[in-house]
Simulated scan of single mutants.
Amino acid sequence: MTGAPSTPGVADALTQLLGPRVPLRVTAYDGSDAGPREAAVTLEVRSPDALRRALTAPGELGLARAYVAGDLEIHGDLYAALALRDQISGLALRPAAWATLVRMAGGAAALRRVPEPPPEESRVHGRRHSRARDAAAISHHYDVSGEFYRLLLGPSMTYSCAVWRDASVGLEAAQEAKYELISRKLGLRPGMRLLDVGCGWGGMVIHAARHHGVRALGVTLSREQADLARRRVADAGLSDLVEIRLSDYRDVHDAPFDAISSIGMFEHVGTAHLGEYVGRMHRLLLPSGRLLNHGISRPAGQKGIGRRGFIQRYVFPDGELQEIGRVISAVQHSGLEVRHVE
C-alpha cells in the first residue's frame, strides 16, 4: 500500500511556474528543493516575505525588493543569473499558479501585511528632473563613502569606461588614456577654460590641469563627490587651476568656456530636458568651443529603463538612456555641429 503523495513545496511550485526552459535550481525556507542540481544558478527563497513581495509588486520590482531585503539569495554564477532575467521577465502567472503562491505566502490576509520596501529603495519626489529631484536622485547614488567607491573603481575614482590599448596596461593606465583621448578631442591647451559637467571625484579636471595647463571648473550635485574631489585637487597641488563646485549645470553662469566635457552624466538629464541640456552647453561655449558628450546609449526601438525596475529604484533613480540619432538631432538643433561620433 502506498502513502499519499507529498504536498509540493515552495521550490516545486516555483520551478513548475518557471518551466523547463529556465535552468534554475530553487531551495526554500520550507525545506523543499527542486530543479536541476547541475544548474549554474541556485535561487534560495529564505522567507515567505519573498513571495509576498513578488506577488504584491509583480515583475522585477518585487524580486528586487526581496533580494535587497535578504528574503531571496542567489548562489552560483552571477553572469548566468543575469542572463536568466530576460527569460523570467516574460512570465505571466496563471490563476492556478497565483492561487498556489498566495496560499504558500500565508493566504490573502498575509498579502495585506507586506513588509515596507527596504530602506535602500529610492524615494525621490517632485517633478521629474527638477533641480530638487535631480539633487535627491544624485545623492541617493553618489553620496556614499568615498572608500566604497575606491574599492569599486580603484585609485582613479573614475566611474565610466576606460580606453584599453591591450589587456596588460591595467585599469589606471586605461582610465588615464580615456582622459587623454578626451583632452585631445577637445583640443585642450594651456590657459583654456574647461567646464566638466558631472565631474565626479575630479578625475578629468585634475588630468586636464596637470597635463594640459587648463583652468578647470568641475560641477557635481553630490556633496560627497565635491568634498573628496576638492581634497584630491589639493593633494595634486592644482588648487590654483581647478575649482570644484556643488552646483547644477543649469546654474553655471560664468561663461564662456573654451571646452566642455560631460562624462557619464548625460544619463541623468532626461529625454524631456535633452534640448535644454544641449542648448545650455551651447550657450556656455565660446563660438569656437568644443563639447565632448559621453553617455550610455540604447539601440533604436529598445525600451528605456523601466520605472518599476531594479535600476530605477535601487541604482540610478530617474536615469534615462538616449538613442544616438535623437542625441545627434538635438545637438545640431541647438546650433552645435556634430563632428565625431563613436
Rank of each mutant, 00 (worst) to 15 (best):
A34T: 11
R21H: 14
A39Y: 01
P36Q: 07
A40W: 05
V22T: 13
V26N: 02
V45Q: 04
V41F: 05
V45P: 10
P36R: 06
R37N: 08
R46L: 15
V26G: 00
D49I: 09
P23R: 02
D30G: 07
P48G: 06
V26M: 05
A28E: 02
E44W: 08
G35V: 03
A34S: 15
V45R: 03
R25W: 07
T42R: 15
T42H: 01
L24R: 08
V26Y: 02
T42C: 06
P20Y: 07
R25Q: 14
V41T: 02
G35D: 05
P48M: 03
V45S: 08
G31Q: 08
V41H: 10
V26R: 04
P48C: 09
V45A: 09
T42V: 05
V45L: 09
G31T: 11
S47T: 12
L24T: 03
P36H: 00
S32E: 02
E44R: 15
A34H: 07
T42M: 02
D33N: 13
G35T: 03
V41R: 06
T42K: 04
G31P: 05
E44H: 14
D33S: 09
T27I: 15
A34V: 05
T27W: 11
T27M: 06
A34F: 07
A28I: 06
R21D: 15
G31D: 07
E44T: 15
R46M: 13
A40S: 14
G31M: 10
A39G: 10
R25A: 11
S47P: 09
E44Y: 07
L43E: 12
D49S: 09
A28Y: 04
G31Y: 11
R25G: 01
E44A: 15
V41L: 06
P23S: 00
Y29L: 06
D30T: 05
A28T: 11
A34M: 08
V41S: 10
A40I: 02
V22K: 00
L24W: 00
L43Y: 12
G31C: 07
R46A: 14
V45T: 04
V41M: 13
T27S: 15
D33G: 12
L24P: 05
E38W: 03
A28L: 05
R37W: 06
S32W: 03
P48Y: 08
A34L: 09
R25K: 05
R21Y: 13
S32R: 03
R37P: 09
R21E: 15
V22M: 04
V26Q: 01
V22N: 09
P20I: 10
L24Q: 12
P23K: 03
R21L: 14
Y29I: 02
L43C: 03
E38L: 13
V41C: 10
D30K: 06
G35L: 00
A34Q: 00
R37S: 14
D30W: 00
T27D: 14
D33T: 06
T42D: 12
L43V: 13
D49G: 12
G35F: 02
